[in-house]
């Protein structure tokens, strides 16, 4: 049996496979989670992932294409996606080779929840989460979920649990800001700066606002201007993908929080994701001489 390269696509997912005699690789894109941003395309070392924009006149959102011939199942895209939309499996098991071999970091999703502070009945965070990743439950002493709080006799004995599906969370911090009880503390994965030059925007264009996965990050003000909010922006760049005018949105990533790693591949990814300024800072702070040299060589 020769090696087989296959591709399947449905409305919900895009899956590619490399089937070898005794080894099977798959990479699945969950289209429901994918926001079609800039990140995976930028970091893929083989340029196997591409954002395909609709042809002129075509009424369709941009989408991701994965090249079965080019993908080598390294898992970099999987590691970098803040929305957890990509999943790599080898022989049916979830794995990210580049992370396993410490060639690539994991993103740090720093989310601390002090559910002690949560009063029974509050579901603000759950309602706020734009990606519906938070589940708030009320439980009794034994941890059993309580369906109808009002019927429960000793209300003071009830507790609140808050669960977040972390691996899919880009950490927009909306929940933290909306929480009335200061129960959630987060730190962003990516820091940076975003602004919109409204003078360049075509009349009535709303593309970026519609593409933005976080409603509060890009909004239309009362006077019809697009306003960007650094507070909630996750710097994924989905807005820039759809923006019809080059330079109307300026987006800069300065810091990416990740597990420690010493790797040229990561530096290359960083170089593509961040401004040179941000990157130089990271390198300085780490003083990775060899790696820095390699990057300088490439930049030269």
């Amino acid at each position: 049996m020769p090696m087989k390269l296959q591709k399947f696509e449905t409305d919900e997912q895009l899956k590619i496979e490399r089937i070898m005699y005794a080894r099977r690789y798959s990479l699945t894109l969950d289209k429901r989670r994918c926001v079609v941003c800039e990140l995976c395309e930028a970091v893929c070392p083989r340029e196997a992932i591409r954002v395909v924009k609709p042809e002129d006149g075509e009424q369709a959102p941009p989408r991701l294409e994965i090249d079965v011939e080019l993908c080598q199942y390294c898992g970099i895209c999987n590691a970098v996606c803040p929305f957890g939309a990509l999943e790599l499996k080898i022989n049916g098991e979830k794995t990210i080779p580049v992370v396993k071999f410490e060639s690539f970091p994991r993103l740090i999703r720093d989310i601390k929840i002090d559910a002690e502070k949560c009063p029974v009945g509050c579901t603000v965070c759950m309602d706020t989460c734009p990606l519906k990743l938070i589940t708030v439950k009320v439980v009794d002493e034994e941890g059993r979920p309580v369906e109808n709080v009002d019927l429960y006799p000793e209300k003071e004995r009830l507790k609140v649990t808050v669960e977040i599906e972390k691996e899919y969370c880009p950490v927009c911090r909306l929940c933290e800001y909306k929480c009335p009880y200061d129960a959630i503390h987060t730190q962003k994965i990516i820091y940076g700066h975003i602004s919109v030059k409204n003078e360049l925007c075509p009349e009535g264009c709303r593309e970026c606002v519609e593409a933005c996965p976080i409603p509060e990050a890009l909004q239309i003000s009362e006077d019809g201007r697009v306003v960007a909010n650094d507070l909630f922006c996750v710097y994924c760049g989905a807005c820039r993908i759809v923006c019809p005018v080059e330079g109307a949105i300026s987006l800069e990533r300065t810091v990416i929080r990740h597990t420690p790693v010493h790797s040229g591949a990561w530096n290359k990814a960083l170089e593509k994701l961040t401004s040179t300024k941000g990157m130089a800072k990271e390198l300085r702070s780490r003083a990775l001489i060899k790696v820095k040299e390699s990057v300088e060589r490439r930049l030269a």
Binding site: F104, V291, S294
Partner: peptide, 8 residues
């Protein structure tokens, strides 16, 4: 992918 793990 030029991670340079091998160099190390």
């Amino acid at each position: 992918i030029e991670c340079y793990k091998c160099v190390d």
